[in-house]
C-alpha cells in the first residue's frame, strides 16, 4: 500500500512539474467560465436555475474534454516509461507491477480531480458574482456533475493504460488513444443515431437502446448528468430519452465502475506479461 502511495505522489509531483496539472486546470477553468458567462446570454430569463444551465453546458464540455485529457496523460504512462528506460529501473525495486499501475492510477485521478474541481468550481463560484442566486438542489447536482466527471476521467485513464500496456511504442499508443477518443465521443453516437433513424424503432426498442448506451462510457455519463434531475433534463433536451430509460443513477454509476475496472484489470494483466 505504501509503495502505491509513493508512486501516486511521484505521479502528482511530475504532473505539477511538467505543468500537466496547470494546463488541464487552466483549460477547464477558461472554458467553464466562458460558458458560464456567455452561455446564459441567449437563454435570457426562462425561469430555470442558472446553475442548471451551467451544468448542461459543462457536461457537454466534459464529454469532449475530460476523456481527451485523461487519454493524453495515461496513454504514455507505461509504454513511455518503458521506452525512456525508467521502467527497467523501477521494476528492479521492491514493488509489483500491479502496485505501479494502481499508484499511477491514483496519481492521475488526483490530477484530474484537482483540475475538474478547481476548473468547474471557479465557474460555479463566479455565478453569484453576476447577481444570480443559486439554490441547494442545483448545487448538489453540480457537485454530482464534478464527481461523475472525475469518474468518467477514471474510465479513460484506465482505457489509456490498457492501450499503453499493449502498445509497442509511444507513437502507436498515441494513435490508438486518439482513435479511441474519436470512437467513443463522436462516432459511436453518430452511428447509433443513423441506425435509429433507419430502424424506426422496429428492432431497437427502448430497452435495447439502454443496453447499447451502456457500451459507451461517454453516453453513460450523459445519461447520468443530463437526464438526472427534472429541470436539467428538460433543458438538455434529454427528457424524452430519460423517460423511456429504466437506467437509474446507481445502475449508471455501476456501469462506469465496470468501465474502470475491466480496462484496468486487462491493463494489469498485459503489463504483467510484458517482457522488457
Amino acid at each position: 500500500m505504501k509503495s502505491i502511495l509513493i508512486i501516486a505522489l511521484k505521479e502528482v509531483q511530475e504532473g505539477l512539474r511538467n505543468r500537466w496539472v496547470v494546463a488541464a486546470t487552466a483549460l477547464l477553468a477558461t472554458l467553464a467560465l466562458t460558458l458560464t458567462f456567455l452561455g446564459s446570454a441567449p437563454t435570457g430569463n426562462v425561469g430555470v436555475e442558472p446553475l442548471d444551465i451551467v451544468i448542461v453546458s459543462l457536461s457537454s464540455l466534459t464529454i469532449f474534454l475530460v476523456p481527451l485529457i485523461a487519454l493524453l496523460i495515461s496513454h504514455d504512462a507505461l509504454v513511455g516509461e518503458v521506452e525512456r528506460g525508467t521502467m527497467l529501473l523501477l521494476l528492479s525495486y521492491p514493488l509489483t507491477r500491479w502496485q505501479i499501475l494502481l499508484g499511477k492510477f491514483i496519481g492521475h485521478i488526483a490530477i484530474l480531480a484537482f483540475a475538474t474541481t478547481i476548473g468547474y468550481g471557479l465557474a460555479a463560484a463566479s455565478l453569484p458574482l453576476t447577481g444570480t442566486s443559486v439554490n441547494l438542489g442545483s448545487l448538489t447536482a453540480f457537485a454530482a456533475m464534478i464527481g461523475s466527471s472525475v469518474v468518467l476521467g477514471g474510465v479513460f485513464v484506465a482505457i489509456g493504460y490498457l492501450i499503453s500496456a499493449l502498445s509497442a511504442n509511444r507513437g502507436s499508443a498515441a494513435g490508438v488513444a486518439i482513435g479511441v477518443w474519436l470512437f467513443f465521443v463522436l462516432l459511436f453516437d453518430m452511428a447509433l443515431l443513423g441506425v435509429l433513424v433507419v430502424d424506426q424503432g422496429r428492432v431497437i426498442t427502448a430497452s435495447v437502446l439502454d443496453a447499447v448506451l451502456l457500451f459507451n462510457p461517454a453516453d453513460v455519463y450523459r445519461l447520468l448528468n443530463l437526464a438526472g434531475s427534472g429541470s436539467v433534463s428538460m433543458l438538455a433536451g434529454m427528457s424524452g430519452l430519460a423517460d423511456s430509460s429504466v437506467l437509474t443513477a446507481p445502475a449508471l454509476l455501476a456501469a462506469l465502475a465496470v468501465w474502470i475496472l475491466l480496462p484496468l484489470a486487462f491493463a494489469g494483466l498485459a503489463f504483467s506479461r510484458r517482457e522488457l
Binding site: 512539474r17 528506460g85 525508467t86
Partner: peptide, 11 residues
C-alpha cells in the same frame, strides 16, 4: 544500474 540509465528530467 541499467545501461543508459534514465530519469524523469523534470525532477
Amino acid at each position: 544500474l541499467p545501461e543508459n540509465v534514465a530519469f524523469n528530467l523534470a525532477l
